[in-house]
Design a protein around this nucleic acid. Structure first.
Length: 882
RNA sequence: GCAGGAGUACCCAAGCGGUCAAAGGGGCCAGACUCAAGAUCUGGUGACUUAGUGUCUUCGCAGGUUCGAAUCCUGUCUCCUGCACCA
């Protein structure tokens, strides 16, 4: 099937409005959705998998006679397009090359390509350009989408709908305000995202929470504040480290005095600690003084000098746990070698036992780290011991406290203790030293005006669990993951200051956008409303909360409100189409999209509008490797159409793996599916062109067998086992035809004609173009996409099946014997049977057998030199070759 | 580490207590057709064995339950995915 033929059908479907259902239909409705695409580039074959399976679902439901509504929109809000625009602004060569290639998929004229690329410095242009072309990708793939309600998330009507959604969430208590750490550039006074950070895409920067431990020092309410990732090691603390080379400061905040590195002050101020600086001094002046252990003030802890302590990281104060921290161990070791007096008295205190861990010295030796100069080795050792002790270690404190407790658990206990004594606080740091692309440092700031979606309510979770419990989900084991995601979701920040998006309606400020995952939860209902809103030419102001309450929830507007009629009309439609009967997506979205989708529905809608089903297909890799822009191994769908056709792409995707398996796009295997597709086309075309209508009993047997295979395909479609459906409809039907030809040596066309319509229709969910083409040639009268089919019924013809199996057995035996005579090609084959029925079968098949074996077959011939006739038994005729 | 999933013949992949040496698709080998290539058709493709039979071994590894296990149980190894504010 050529691409131009496929294009013909795309246009026909469109011009005949084949996929545009009406709510006036009497058929059972089926409202189906696949998440809208985020268009940062052309769709690739990975997206193709989800959309193909989605389309198979939609088409099969249409075949079943349901009134299918499958709309699509585009998700253009978010930050990834910013990264693309920024890179193009910077004239980033790689990005330019990539996008020239992408645009080149759709545009021929190099000048136009260049001007488009230039327009992409505005992120909205990237999103809009690809949105319209992704639509083209989906159409060419054959997706049976109703494009009338198509919208983007930047549309005014949509944004007003999102405002409505957020006001509803607020009214139901699901939106709360709080503190939140973010990556921040003090120089730019702005939040930064992955794409603002130098190498942020390849070397991800994350936010890490340090515990600040307050060591009482020199007077009440004064503390040396140390930062640590491992508060559980506090009992192993032998001393504090101060870098004598750097500046420290005494600061005051909330009636406490903190002594920390001067450089840490700004950082902490950004995190909500409004320090007042009292005095500054060099670290040297703290050396050899003593602080107290925060959990046991009688224990005095000496302060020792350490060059490895940095003012940039943490607070510039570190507490030392030489038994469990490589840096501390080596620093102490070096001091001892220098005969530093107060260091010589100190020995490491082991407080954690870990199976298979033989002490820090061996660990350091393994990493070839024996001096503070071996930074990398020490760092690697630190990571290793941290991970190992955290997951496998058990506390072994001498005083009995926490003994035997796992490190993970002990960490919490100690934190609780510190909090109770108000001896701790927290500090957020980036996981690595990072700079903006302009070269400004990136730090962590804690925002106190962040809004969260708060999913922690028990009742809400319960309601959502109960929805999931009764919902059909395929593959079923994902149900468990969804329950877990529901339990695990707590507070989630839902607004941010960057990227395209809808303004957050609950604050005056224009700088807060709704975070793009949070706005994609109940938009399925908007597909139903949007066309009517547009047709009614309502102004943005008219799309207020009262309007959406009426349109989406059926509340009544005052009768004198001019919008009442249209709102009623929309609600009628919503009432017809909602809920979403089935949503198909990838399992990666379970912990966000799908969970939010379920949560938001149970909160904002009455139960009768809650979603009805979920299906998932795993991802698709190429030649065993994940596809990614950076690897350059992405295959745009358009290239697949060009190289293989949409039908072939679809058939390959569907037949290569069931939903629960990762599919592998093997470049050399895709074209191989083609011969099967040709085979089907050839067989059906021959039947269409055949003028022979007379059915022999053998033909009748074949008809039943074809129906049986098609019936199995039907059931497989019904159970989302599309790989199996493809196998039945494309491969096993052909195998039945082959059996027929082999045993009867006749033309199967009269039989195929009997099942022509059913066969073509049951190919159509997977290869709609071929099916339409064949349907046209067969003069089915209507477009295949507009026809319905019932499950084929078959009554297997047992008598002939027995005959076929018998002859197949004979052929097998003939083959076997022929191999035994080796070398010599026999000219004559004698078959002897005493059973009259079998003899008749053999005579019946005589010609076919001769044709097949390439030697003349004689049945019950008088020539019987080996006395085979006597050896023959019922069910097993004797064979002699010469 | 936790959670979910997976490991099946040369490759992909189905099977999920007996009809399983294990569907289907590739690949490969042999044969037919062809001047040839391609396409197509036919047969073979765990081992040994046999005028069409029979035996043995195999479904990550090791045990167990059972008359019987690729399928159930226990342990173990390896791989993939997710572990958040990112679409």
């Amino acid at each position: 099937m050529s691409t131009s033929l496929e294009q013909k059908w795309v246009e026909k479907w469109h011009s005949l409005h084949v996929f545009e259902p009406s709510s006036l239909s009497k058929e059972k409705k089926f409202f189906f959705t696949v998440p809208y695409a985020y268009p940062t580039g052309p769709l690739h074959v990975g997206h193709g998998r989800t959309y193909t399976n989605g389309d198979v679902t939609a088409r099969f439901h249409r075949l079943k006679g349901e009134n299918v509504f499958w709309p699509m929109g585009f998700h253009v809000t978010g930050t990834p397009v910013l990264a693309i625009s920024d890179a193009l602004k910077r004239n980033d060569e790689e990005m330019k090359k990539l996008y020239t290639e992408y645009v080149g998929i759709y545009e021929k004229d190099p000048k136009k390509i260049q001007s488009l690329i230039q327009s992409f410095v505005d992120p909205a242009n990237v999103a809009n350009y690809f949105a319209s072309h992704v639509q083209e990708d989906l159409q060419k793939l054959g997706c049976s989408i109703d494009w009338r309600p198509m919208f983007t998330t930047m549309d005014k009507e949509y944004q007003k709908f999102i405002h409505w959604q957020f006001r509803k969430l607020y009214a139901k208590g699901a939106l709360v305000k709080g503190k939140y750490p973010i990556l921040y550039s003090p120089a730019d006074k702005n939040a930064v995202g992955e794409d603002d950070i130098k190498d942020g895409d390849t070397d991800k920067v994350q936010i890490q929470e340090y515990t600040l431990v307050k060591f009482p020092f020199d007077k009440p309410n004064a503390f040396l504040v140390a930062s640590t990732l491992r508060p559980e090691t506090l009992f192993g603390c032998t001393n504090l480290w101060i870098n004598p080379q750097i500046e420290y400061a005494r600061t005051r905040w909330n009636n406490e005095e903190w002594i920390i590195a001067e450089k840490a002050i700004e950082k902490l101020q950004l995190q909500g600690k409004k320090f007042e600086i009292m005095e500054k001094f060099s670290g040297q002046s703290l050396i050899d003084k003593h602080a107290s252990n925060p959990l046991d003030e009688k224990t005095k802890i000496p302060i020792l000098p350490a060059s490895f302590v940095s003012a940039e990281k943490g607070t510039g104060v570190v507490y030392s746990v030489p038994a469990h921290a490589p840096w501390d161990f080596i620093a102490l070791y070096e001091l001892k070698q220098q005969k530093y007096p107060s260091a010589e008295k100190i020995s490491p205190i082991t407080i954690i036992d870990t199976p298979g861990f033989e002490g820090i010295e061996k660990l350091l030796a393994a990493h070839k780290a024996i001096s503070l100069k071996h930074r990398e080795g020490i760092q690697a050792a630190t990571e290793e011991i941290y991970k190992k002790e955290f997951y496998e270690g058990k506390m072994n404190l001498k005083n009995g406290f926490l003994v035997g407790m796992s490190v993970q658990h002990a960490k919490e206990k100690i934190l609780q203790n510190l909090i109770a004594k108000s001896r701790c606080d927290s500090l957020h740091e980036p996981t690595r030293k990072a700079f903006t692309r302009a070269g400004n440092p990136v730090v962590v700031a804690v925002m106190d005006d962040q809004w969260f979606l708060d999913y922690s309510s028990k009742e809400w979770k319960q309601k959502t669990h109960s929805l999931v419990e009764k919902m059909p989900i395929y593959p079923e084991y994902f149900k468990k993951s969804i329950h877990e995601a529901i339990d695990w979701l707590e507070k989630r920040p839902c607004i941010r200051k960057r990227g395209l998006g809808t303004k957050f309606p609950l604050v005056e400020s224009d700088e807060w956008m709704i975070e793009p995952l949070s706005d994609s939860t109940i938009y399925m209902v908007f597909y139903i409303a949007v066309t009517h809103i547009r047709n009614a030419s309502l102004s943005v102001e008219q799309l207020d909360e009262a309007f959406y309450d009426a349109a989406l929830l059926g509340k009544k507007l005052p009768t004198n409100d001019t919008r009442a009629a249209i709102a009623n009309k929309i609600f009628e439609e919503v009432n017809y189409w909602y809920p979403n009967d089935l949503r198909h997506t990838a399992p990666a979205h379970i912990s966000n999209h799908i969970s939010f989708f379920l949560f938001t529905h149970t909160l904002l809608f009455p139960e009768k509008f809650w979603p009805r089903g979920l299906t998932f297909n795993e991802m698709l890799v190429r030649n065993g490797v994940k596809m990614s822009k950076s690897k350059g191994n992405v295959i745009p769908l358009q290239h697949a159409f060009r190289d293989y056709s949409a039908d072939l792409t679809r058939l390959f995707i569907v037949s290569s793996a069931s939903f629960e398996r990762v599919a592998d796009w093997k470049d050399n295997q895709v074209p191989q599916v083609k011969s099967k597709l040709n085979d089907v086309e050839r067989t059906l075309t021959r039947a269409i062109e055949s003028t022979e209508n007379k059915l022999t009993p053998a033909h009748e047997w074949l008809v039943e067998n074809l129906r049986a295979r098609l019936s199995e395909a039907y059931d497989a479609y019904d159970k989302f086992e599309y790989m199996y459906a493809a196998q039945k409809a494309f491969f096993e039907t052909l195998n039945e035809v082959k059996r027929f030809r082999k045993v009867f040596g006749a033309d199967e066309s009269p039989a195929v004609k009997q099942v022509l319509k059913e066969w073509i229709l049951l190919l159509s969910p997977i290869t709609p173009f071929l099916a339409e083409e064949l349907g046209e040639r067969a003069k089915l009268g209507k477009l295949v996409s507009q026809m319905t089919v019932a499950k084929p019924q078959s009554k297997p013809n047992k008598a002939i099946e027995e005959q076929v199996v018998f002859i197949e057995g004979v052929l097998q035996d003939l083959e076997h014997v022929r191999k035994l005579v080796r070398g010599k090609q026999p000219k004559l084959g004698f078959i002897y049977s005493k059973d009259s029925r079998e003899t008749a079968w053999l005579r019946d098949a005589q010609q076919a057998l001769s044709k097949h074996t390439q030697f003349e077959i004689r049945v019950n011939d008088a020539h019987d030199p080996l006395g085979k006739m006597a050896k023959s038994v019922k069910g097993r005729p004797a064979i002699y070759l010469e």
